[in-house]
Design a binder for these strands. Sequence first.
DNA 1: TTAAAATCTCGAATGCGGTCGAGTTTAGCA
DNA 2: TGCTAAACTCGACCGCATTCGAGATTTTAA
Lengths: 199, 199
Amino acid sequence: MAGLREQKKAETRKAIIDAAVQLFSNKGFEKTSIEDIATVAGIGKATVYTYFSAKVDIFLTYCDDELEGAFSELATKQSRASDLHEQLLEFFMIMFRFVTRDREFGRQLMRATSFPEEANPALKEHNKYYFDFLENIFRSAAQRGEIATGQDYYYLSAHVFSLYFAALAGFYGGYSETAEDVENGLSIFFRQFIDGIKP
Amino acid sequence: MAGLREQKKAETRKAIIDAAVQLFSNKGFEKTSIEDIATVAGIGKATVYTYFSAKVDIFLTYCDDELEGAFSELATKQSRASDLHEQLLEFFMIMFRFVTRDREFGRQLMRATSFPEEANPALKEHNKYYFDFLENIFRSAAQRGEIATGQDYYYLSAHVFSLYFAALAGFYGGYSETAEDVENGLSIFFRQFIDGIKP
DNA sequence: TTAAAATCTCGAATGCGGTCGAGTTTAGCA
DNA sequence: TGCTAAACTCGACCGCATTCGAGATTTTAA
């Protein structure tokens, strides 16, 4: 009868995530209590903590799964973007749409990513993926002669990544309302980045 | 006897900030409770909320107060001599040094302000202060002919601000060790920003 | 088969941020 | 000076995340 407990655990774990995701999208992260989640999942409140070490971890686990989806979309999608500016915009808008599919999703993800209390290995892995992807974009732009060669790709990637963060912060801070607003903002940022701001 | 209340209020306010800063440096933001602060400040817990609307506001206010002096000095100094790149670097390094005076302090501050759980008016005010300052830097750079005119100063400010965030994230993520490393990173970012990255 | 060890469960307890409202102090004016 | 309105103070309270601990269930090994 080995594995009975394992199997139950997997079911309970899934029940918690399902309940949490459902409640989070209905009521939002803040308004959803652990007790709500436990009740919907059909378990006791304290039992949740056998599976997740904190409320936010439930959400990050879900985020993690979702991001896998975003990356696979990126990998399969044939890029129609021709120049660097378009490529950057396309890349980040795919990420943006994914991350803000549910508003809370993006916010918590950003909180966990930007100045984490504890390092989260899964998220670090994701960031590395972003950076690798970006470095490839820059490498090919350099090959096409669109940008100067001999630049540190790491700093270029970090630069555009930070602009993406700024766009997201604007979205969550109430400065931009729609995805279109965000796209316009990003477009301006990338123009500045590529062309510089001199006369 | 006019101003008696005003004076007391100012004293209490200062007592709260002092207590908070002291406790925070010792125990960290999370571990310091409002009650601790109230006790050290010699007042009741609820009274803290007459002066500050939330725990983070105490720290934001402290930062605003401390940085105000540094910046007004900077404002008068900066009009002469240096160019945009240097001015930006100077501005952000003052902020960086202040914020990382105590390492934990900086991390907590960033956590509290980057993707807040709920919109916070005081936080908006706080950020607006820095943006206004940056806009002035850009305005005078435009007047000197250093950068193209007709650009949206708001986007320029947001751009450099996001680079500062990236540098800080790098510092807390373990990518740069010393203040000097951070300054070098920022310098590279600002060069990219000003000059663009084309061949 | 069985009994000890390991693990899981969950109601109860803890601690904290934040609010309430009754009591107190001050300001302003007659 | 006396009186009222406005503003301040703080103990008590609320809701919620997280931890405790004691009892239930499952695994392991002989």
